[in-house]
Nucleic acid binder design. Structure first.
Length: 852
DNA sequence: GCAAGGTC
């Protein structure tokens, strides 16, 4: 029997495809990497019986990066990034995707690729093929071994048709993605590194740790600044309107609207008024009623969900998608990333409605639709990806948190709305002529609320009164006058408007749009103001104006599409991969060099808005070179700047940095500082010079004195190290001499801390070693504060073994307020095992290993 | 520390 391996783009799709292809007869097991599942069944392939194995990747298997030596910002000139070697690296090392695929492919004769049918999917096909090339039974690059399934909807019919008409992966399309990745990397990183270093080296109050550039994020910012500029340059213009009021027989006032709407010339407006102002009455020319409809929505896709979440639910797109993902994994809604707004033909609309009929929120509306018959949904667009976003099961308000409920509520009401009737109303327009001037009055009456009974926010507030006027009727004019108005500037761009702009200009995809918006917020280029409007910051404005000054193309929304046009030539096989890549890289390298040469143009704008480093910050601690005070710049990224030496030293992000007793580093005379994330967080003493320029080979950049192997300094690892870390492989628990009276040991590598000897006056790490391998300590308390037995004030012993210390030493715990760390390969540290009084590993052996 | 694109 043949073995056939099939691979989809994500675990959820593998499950759906397996169920369809096996007619529900597949078995399922968890994959070795913990995220993918493997579905198996027996069937027929090419006329012989076969064992099928369906699994998936999780998006891209590989990502692209520069080879590591080019990732040193201090030693590499960014212009080199246009030509330096790049390599493919595993996109998410913890998934171990190549190993997983290779293992599952062992002994398989055929490979069928079920990746999404777009260019990215085609590229992932080749990533999968490369992963399994060695373990497949045949040559994976042969057209007799590897096939491509092309499907345009996840329906029984479409999937089975794809299976019966297998094609081959399209290498040109895949290559166009390779080119896109390489271009984005080279261009984005070159500009970002150059800008960041240039401006951070000059200004102290930029408040962004990164001044980034990207072919998607920069035009996105450009839209926000464009609106800002429109607001700034807006000149209000006066205009005039004739307001006329007539009286009905019932004595009601009816305000009439002038058909000319408004007039920008006061003289002219006055002339119109003069011609009619003496009229005492007027005749109704016509009364026309017309049935109008507000259309029910098309089925919901990602971009529309994000727009509504932002404008209607007050949720940012990034946040909304996080919640949608959660609802999806919990089985409440269907896959939330899709461009499609059309239900598949055999989609069980009625079945989904049935699930909702007992809801206390919208059950009545659902029952009514079910009893009267479902309305045919509006034709939407089928992008060939996933079905529109729909509810998958009934949820009640109290089983979800507030925000999840808001989103679920919207998705469900939207779904019901797509199956309801249009909202119908009667629009009645009364036309009146006063001499030569035409005026109208309009009123609306609701005929059928249709879908607005469930999408209540779109409903009529109340019927607008239809003026009780008849054709040919003569009505008295009660009032007529000229009113003066002013044109108003537009408001800042809403997130919803920005999403629409990005979508129409092809900037980003449904999955990446929220990421780009999030980026420009987090980098402090825009802030979200009330009504989720995006107001550019000074930094965002000078950046965009700077590009416009130097090379306006860099910020144009058409830039992305121009590059994509080039890439498309590769995809269509009309141009050579290398030729297109070289051509485009060359163009951007020239643009980059021109940008660097003319950066003064942008700098002139920065100069006006920001303070130079030398004028920023407060005097803080002394420089070891010139003995003068350096300045502490608190704005992101935190730094110390020595105006005398014109040197800048980075400081740890987050947390608090303080002077440590005016003590000095014995190596360079810089004053020592202490950094802490609070009593329950990490902390250490550090020398600002060594932190940036580690003095010893075994000390890494960005470390404190707790990692320094100075033999005699009272703050070094050698003096304060207690034992190897009880949680991680290679760290050492070191006493933080600045942490008293809330004393603690902290690991030099992982986030483990041990709080101990609260309120002690002094703790000294001794040279004596306990049997367990830990250094002994001497603890001293003031007499009134002693927690030692018999209130003695001093005691020697082992933190882990001395019984008298038992209650004074906490369990090792994970420091709070630290960002979760990614452990690449190797064993992740064990957390929360609750090992109190753990026996440490042999410290000396550990230290020796550490220093190698 | 950087881009944009997949997805968890």
């Amino acid at each position: 029997m043949k073995s056939v391996l099939m691979v989809a783009e994500k675990p959820s799709l593998a499950a759906s495809l397996a169920s369809i292809l096996s007619n529900g007869s597949n078995s399922t097991r968890k994959g070795s990497n913990g995220v993918c599942s493997v579905h198996e069944w027996n069937g027929t392939f090419q006329g012989t019986s076969a064992r099928f194995k369906m699994t998936s990747v999780c998006g891209h298997v590989m990502g692209v990066d520069f080879i590591s030596k080019y990732n040193n910002w201090d030693r590499v000139d960014p212009v080199e990034l246009f030509s330096c070697p790049i390599e493919k690296k595993e996109a998410t090392p913890k998934f171990k995707m190549p190993a997983f695929l290779s293992n599952e492919a062992k002994g398989c004769e055929n490979l069928i690729l079920w990746l999404d049918c777009d260019k990215e999917g085609e590229n992932i096909c080749f990533e999968v093929m490369n992963s399994v090339a060695r373990s497949m039974a045949g040559d994976v690059y042969s057209r007799k071994v590897t096939y491509r399934a092309r499907f345009s909807a996840i329906t029984d019919r479409d999937i089975k048709a794809a299976f019966n008409n297998l094609a081959h992966p399209n290498e040109n399309e895949a290559r166009s993605v390779d080119a896109r990745q390489e271009l984005d990397l080279r261009i984005g990183c070159a500009f970002t590194r150059f800008q960041t270093k240039f401006f951070q080296g000059r200004y102290g109050d930029l408040d962004s740790s990164l001044i980034s550039y990207g072919p998607c994020q920069t035009p996105t910012l450009g839209f926000c600044v464009q609106r800002h500029d429109q607001i700034q340059t807006f000149k209000p213009e006066p205009y005039w309107v004739i307001k006329a009021v007539v009286k009905t027989k019932d004595g009601d006032d009816v305000n009439l609207e002038w058909k000319r709407v408004r007039c920008f010339d006061k003289e002219v407006a006055n002339m119109f008024l003069q011609q009619i102002k003496d009229q005492k009455e007027t005749r109704v020319i016509s009364v026309v009623s017309k049935e109008k409809a507000k259309s029910r929505p098309v089925a919901l896709n990602t971009v529309e969900l994000m727009r509504v979440a932002s404008s209607g639910l007050g949720m940012g797109p990034h946040h909304a998608m996080q919640i949608a993902e959660k609802l999806y994994t919990q089985g409440y809604i269907s896959y939330p990333r899709t461009e499609t707004t059309r239900y598949p033909e055999n989609f069980d609309l009625v079945g989904v409605l049935h699930q909702q009929q007992n809801s206390p929120e919208w059950g009545d509306e659902v029952k009514e639709i079910l009893s009267k018959g479902v309305n045919r949904p509006k034709q939407g667009h089928d992008a060939g990806d996933h079905p529109p976003i729909t509810p998958m099961k009934l949820a009640s308000r109290n089983e979800l948190d507030t925000e999840s409920w808001k989103l679920y509520d919207y998705i469900t009401r939207h779904f019901i709305g797509t199956l309801a009737r249009d909202c119908k109303y009667l629009s009645t327009t009364v036309t009146v002529m006063i001499n030569e001037e035409t005026f109208t009055a309009t009123g609306k009456t609701l005929l059928d609320p249709g879908y607005t009974t469930v999408m209540t926010w779109q409903a009529f507030d109340k019927n607008e009164i239809v003026p009780n006027l008849k054709e040919n009727e003569l009505v008295p004019i009660k009032d007529m006058r000229l009113t003066e108005h002013q044109t108003c500037p537009p408001d800042y761009l809403t997130e919803a408007e920005l999403i629409t702009l990005m979508e129409t200009h092809g900037i980003g995809t449904d999955a990446s749009i929220p990421v780009h918006i999030n980026n420009i917020c987090q980098r402090n280029y825009v802030t979200v103001t009330s009504g989720r409007r995006l107001k550019p910051t000074t930094l965002g404005i000078v950046l965009v104006h700077g590009y416009q000054k130097i090379d306006a193309e860099l910020v144009l929304p058409t830039m992305r599409s121009a590059v994509e046009e080039q890439l498309n030539l590769i995809a269509l096989g009309k141009a050579n991969f290398h030729a297109v890549l070289k051509h485009t890289v060359d163009i951007f390298k020239l643009k980059f060099q021109y940008f660097v040469k003319n950066i003064d143009g942008m700098d002139q704008l920065f100069e006006v808005s920001f303070s130079p480093l030398s004028a920023s910050g407060k005097a803080h601690s002394r420089c070891g070179k010139c003995r003068r005070y350096m300045k502490y710049i608190q704005a992101k990224p935190p730094r110390l700047h020595c105006p005398q030496c014109d040197e800048t030293y980075s400081l740890p992000q987050n947390g608090t940095v303080k002077l440590f007793k005016e003590l000095k580093c014995p190596l360079d005379d810089f004053e020592l500082l202490s950094w802490t994330m609070g009593n329950k967080g990490k902390s250490f003493v550090f020398c600002p010079y060594c932190y940036n320029h580690p003095p010893f080979k075994d000390m890494r950049k960005g470390n404190g004195c707790n990692s320094c192997s100075h033999p005699t300094c009272p703050y070094s690892l050698n003096t304060n190290g207690v034992c190897s870390c009880v949680e991680c492989e290679s760290g050492v628990l070191v006493l933080d001499p600045s942490s008293g009276p809330k004393w603690k040991l902290g690991c030099t590598r992982c986030d483990t801390i041990v709080c101990l000897f609260d309120d002690a006056q002094k703790i000294t790490v001794l040279s004596e070693v306990c049997d367990c391998g830990a250094q002994s300590v001497n603890v001293e308390y003031k007499p009134e504060k002693s927690k030692l037995p018999n209130s003695v004030t001093e005691m020697k012993g082992c933190v882990f073994c001395t019984t008298e210390f038992g209650k004074l030493v906490d369990k090792p715990k994970t420091a709070v307020n630290v960002r979760p760390r990614q452990f690449r390969g190797g064993k992740a540290p064990n957390r929360g095992r609750g090992r109190s009084r753990a026996k440490p590993k042999d410290k000396m052996a550990q230290l020796a290993a550490y220093f190698v």
